[in-house]
Amino acid sequence: MLDDFLVRAALAGLGVAVAAAPLGCFVVWRRMAYFGDATSHAALLGVALALATDLPLFGGVLLAALGMALLLNRLTGRGLGSDALLGVLAHAALALGLVAVSFLPSVRIDLMSYLVGDILAVSKWDLVVIWTGAAAVLALVGWRWSALLSATLSPDMARASGVDPRREELILTLALAITVAVAIKVVGALLIAALLIIPAAAARPLARAPESMALVAMGIGASSALGGLTVSFVLDTPTGPTIVSLAAGLFALTQTLQAVRS
């Protein structure tokens, strides 16, 4: 069954959607869109690191994404506005990644596959990595769900109840880095943040509770992955961008429904 590249692509898209959906909800609630951008753009530095040191791609991207996320965590709130800091680091990471890749002339690199993904080239081993990473993210978020939610909604109340908001932010940072590392093969460095944010934002008008929003976001993400794959195959369009475009269409639909209701 897994010899069929479309089946592998569908399973890969579902794995990324399942991992990204609950994290995307926290990114939306915390208004951390640029945080996701900066972390995902650092993935290109991870690609260069992996190619230069013969590390597995997943390992190099995970190290770079985690390093960027920890740097952001450390620098946030130290004078420079968060949006400005995140904007600087997001674009700097992407530029440095492109420069770093240019210093590897001995390695043949399909840069577009790392920028916008190449889901149709997913191998059986890639599926193992994606679903192991997705399971780790879901386990981590499920284990810390109440604490993460408390720290997101009211850091002061969280402290009063014995929850350390900084620790929960670090846990969220780790989960984001894992998601970026498993998603780069599917949607690429430029589109990972979109797959984090758009399904969660689309789910917001349809849900009345945080848990239901995460579940609806999973459904929207999965529908975008499978629908985008189908449209891409029929119309011969780039698969990663098509998946994100379909997610954007679903976002527009839910926003329209909300406007009609109100």
Rank of each mutant, 00 (worst) to 15 (best):
S150Q: 15
G79I: 04
V7Q: 00
V101C: 02
T39E: 10
V101E: 13
V163S: 08
L6W: 10
G15Q: 02
A181Y: 02
A259S: 03
A201V: 04
D83M: 14
A135Y: 15
L140R: 10
C25Q: 13
A48M: 01
Y114S: 05
A214R: 01
A247R: 04
A189V: 09
V141Q: 13
L85S: 09
A121L: 07
T179V: 10
L66V: 13
L253N: 06
L86A: 05
L57G: 04
L86E: 01
L149G: 06
L86C: 02
V16A: 11
A194T: 00
G79E: 07
D4P: 05
L71G: 08
H41F: 05
T173K: 13
T132L: 11
W29E: 13
A175L: 00
L257K: 06
G227W: 09
M32V: 09
T230R: 09
S150Y: 10
S123R: 08
R78H: 03
A203R: 07
I184S: 03
S161G: 10
V88I: 09
R208P: 10
F251Q: 11
L57N: 11
A42S: 09
Y114H: 03
D164F: 02
K185A: 00
V128T: 10
A64D: 11
A17Y: 03
T173W: 14
T132V: 14
V216C: 08
G188K: 06
G46R: 02
I197M: 08
A19P: 10
R30P: 08
L120I: 11
M1E: 01
A177T: 01
G36V: 12
R208N: 14
L172I: 05
L51P: 03
A225C: 13
I198D: 01
L71K: 13
L75G: 08
A100S: 03
A194P: 01
V122H: 06
S262Q: 14
A158Y: 08
S212Y: 02
D156Q: 00
A135C: 15
N73G: 08
V137H: 07
V107P: 09
R159Y: 15
A193F: 02
P105I: 07
D126T: 04
G219I: 02
S82K: 14
G221R: 05
V128Y: 11
M157P: 05
A90C: 05
I178W: 08
A90Y: 03
L14M: 09
G227R: 01
K124A: 14
R208A: 10
W143C: 12
L96G: 08
F26L: 09
E168T: 04
M32H: 15
V234G: 11
S82C: 13
Y34A: 15
V187G: 15
A209K: 15
K185V: 10
W29V: 06
G188Q: 07
A38M: 05
K185P: 04
G188D: 07
L6I: 03
R30M: 04
A21K: 08
F58G: 08
I192L: 09
A183G: 00
